[in-house]
Design a protein around this nucleic acid. Sequence first.
DNA 1: ATGCATATAGAGGGTGCTCTCTAGATCGAG
DNA 2: CTCGATCTAGAGAGCACCCTCTATATGCAT
Lengths: 202, 202
Amino acid sequence: MGRPAAISDDDVLDSALKLLAAAGDVSAAAIARSLAVPSGSIYHRFASRDHIVAALWLRTTRRFQDGFIHSFDALDAAQGARRAALHALSWAKASPAEATLLWLHRREDLVTAWPEDLAGSAARTGSELAVALRKAADRLGFPGAGLDRVRFTLIDIPQAAVRRALVQADIPWTTLESLVLESLEALIGPGAGAKPVDRMTA
Amino acid sequence: MGRPAAISDDDVLDSALKLLAAAGDVSAAAIARSLAVPSGSIYHRFASRDHIVAALWLRTTRRFQDGFIHSFDALDAAQGARRAALHALSWAKASPAEATLLWLHRREDLVTAWPEDLAGSAARTGSELAVALRKAADRLGFPGAGLDRVRFTLIDIPQAAVRRALVQADIPWTTLESLVLESLEALIGPGAGAKPVDRMTA
DNA sequence: ATGCATATAGAGGGTGCTCTCTAGATCGAG
DNA sequence: CTCGATCTAGAGAGCACCCTCTATATGCAT
């Protein structure tokens, strides 16, 4: 088999995650320092710095998304939606560094040029989410452009709650859960979306 | 008076904003290239790269925040709240690059080390917002910890809508306005916050 | 034991950025 | 016109980082 590896691929990604959450960016050199190996060893596994961060982004996205999509496997659509919305909160609570990576940064800021050989993987991951949302929207009774409403409710608002938690450490998770659930009820609950709120006069 | 300046401070900030929105980060060298002046001229006005980005962040925050806080000057509190929530959308629509700067990046990622001499300015800006929110929360009938609810409704949810618009260009602004207003009505409208939604059984 | 596959080890070339320093240009005041 | 103030002009020192290259170590199969 050859000489055993001193570090694993996941070691590199874990180190990159730690550095990213702390400093806001990563360099291959910093990862190597953090792992106490020469930078050459890093490049033996990953073709470039961008490959490291892209792989980390993919791993993190899939870790979140698997649980998110799985949340829809409830008996009825409404309960699945509630579980999915709250999943972002519980996941972020358990994995704040990964949540920071996904939702406090832009993917294109993390990865300067997305590697060619990971494009397919990224596209597949994106499609999975799109399909799950489309299905959830249909089951909830929001076909067509109603998808925008469902996505805002199940993704954007929960992410906003997570951002708030990451920025303001003293806010109780229960408060955020309530706010997310109340919004959900108003936006995609029974009888929602019928008529918009009466406009302001000015 | 001395030799007239070829570029103004605002020219530097405008250039920095443009580069930031496009590439996700700025260098003093890139700003100099963009303005077609030697980098020395940049450092004649700003002590460091961090001073440039910090000044830009402050200018942008104040531009948004002035309008936001002003929105509360309505006859009744509820209307003021609606105007404030929608202000984020109209401002972002008019200034997408500035909205990108404020809400698609973390301040600490933009500015490596916040300059000492701008700390007071930043603190003052933060306090202004805190005071305005506190006052709005009280007027809306959400004292004490109710502030968290008001902040989520008037800041976090509108920002989530803006992020969605910046990421997904084809979503109609009217859709986002409806979603923001409906959430607002549910979270801080008349009779809101009384009882949380009935919990899921699992 | 020998060979091959697989890793580590570590130096260093090339690049780009931050910031400094000196020289020169351009204005108003007296 | 001369002086002082203010700015541009531009080179370059110092530094970090990306990535490559060669040399060397370690394990399994035969």
